[in-house]
């Protein structure tokens, strides 16, 4: 095979990986602060994708126009979920919280199945088949737009947590729960906000991803797992780690599709996860497990 094929596949994998990174960032933010593993993460993303596809097919709205409304809707969903369902469970055992979100995931995915049916749906924009050519390299335009947007949102999120008072307050909750309570932070509200922000991230990622792949109800559970693979690879709770993990998994999938067979690409992503869990369980950029 000529070398530019490898490069083409690698670049496309990298671009998809950045969108994966944004999705995983949502999971990572939620776990890093609330310490709850969002088992319904992929299902939330599928919800965002369905909203995008529905808006496009029935109203003709471009996915980029849907970015803010869908992210806002997912924020509300995430906020309500944390405030209404998860907050009373903060002090329950880990598996209890886990099962709670498993239940939410089951409900979400099957409501999608009932409402939208099992068939794949996609968005066909005017720029769906555009591509950029740089020398011998051919890159999908949709993927470039999606990856650039994902990077932009991730950057904004970094800035939010680094520089704003609210971001600092949320980080305080993550660093020291008791301390945050002592200095008078409304931890439960901040938790709900965090879950909302994480959900908005995955919502935005879903909008972008609908440019790249078709959506089916079974996408939800698959992407929940993928998000886990990514955050654990990058380091659960580490924000740059989520992006790095996304890129790694995107690359692994793309190259596995090229060298072996596309239907087995998930196997390689899980192989990566097993390796990371065994040799660096805190993830590539994660802090040492306490």
């Amino acid at each position: 095979m000529p070398a530019e094929i490898y490069l083409n596949v690698a670049v496309n994998g990298l671009l998809t990986g950045l969108v994966y990174g944004l999705m995983a960032l949502g999971l990572s933010v939620i776990f890093g602060v609330v310490r709850v593993v969002n088992f319904a993460h992929g299902e939330m993303m599928a919800l965002a994708m369905y909203a995008t596809v529905a808006a496009f097919t029935s109203l003709g709205l471009d996915p980029f126009l849907m970015l803010v409304p869908v992210a806002a809707a997912l924020f509300v969903l995430g906020y309500a979920l944390q405030a209404g369902v998860i907050n009373p469970f903060i002090n329950r055992p880990e598996h209890s919280q886990f099962m709670l979100l498993v239940a939410v995931a089951i409900i979400l995915v099957n409501i999608q199945l009932i409402v939208f049916g099992p068939d794949a749906r996609s968005v066909q924009t005017s720029y769906s088949f555009d591509s950029f050519q740089i020398g011998k390299l051919i890159v999908d335009a949709s993927k470039v737009y999606a990856a650039a947007t994902a990077l932009l949102i991730a950057g904004a999120l970094f800035a939010f947590f680094r520089f704003t008072i609210l971001g600092k307050a949320i980080r305080a909750c993550a660093d020291n729960y008791a301390g945050a309570l002592v200095v008078g932070l409304d931890v439960k509200r901040l938790y709900a906000l965090t879950f909302g922000i994480g959900a908005a991230c995955v919502g935005a990622a879903g909008v972008m991803l609908s440019l790249v792949i078709d959506v089916t109800p079974s996408l939800g559970p698959a992407y929940t797992l993928l998000a886990f693979v990514i955050v654990i690879t990058g380091g659960l709770g580490s924000m740059p780690g989520a992006l790095l993990g996304g890129v790694l998994v995107g690359l692994t999938e793309a190259l596995a599709g090229l060298f072996y067979t596309p239907s087995a690409k998930g196997m390689f992503a899980f192989g990566l996860l097993v390796l990371v869990l065994l040799f660096r369980p805190q993830g590539i950029l994660g802090k040492k497990l306490g």
Binding site: M99, L100, A103, V104, N110, I114
Partner: peptide
């Protein structure tokens, strides 16, 4: 299809809570 699973989910949610 899916209604049974929604029911499973609701049962699980109610029991866990």
């Amino acid at each position: 299809p899916g209604a049974k699973q929604v029911f499973y989910g609701v049962c699980l949610l109610v029991v866990v809570m």
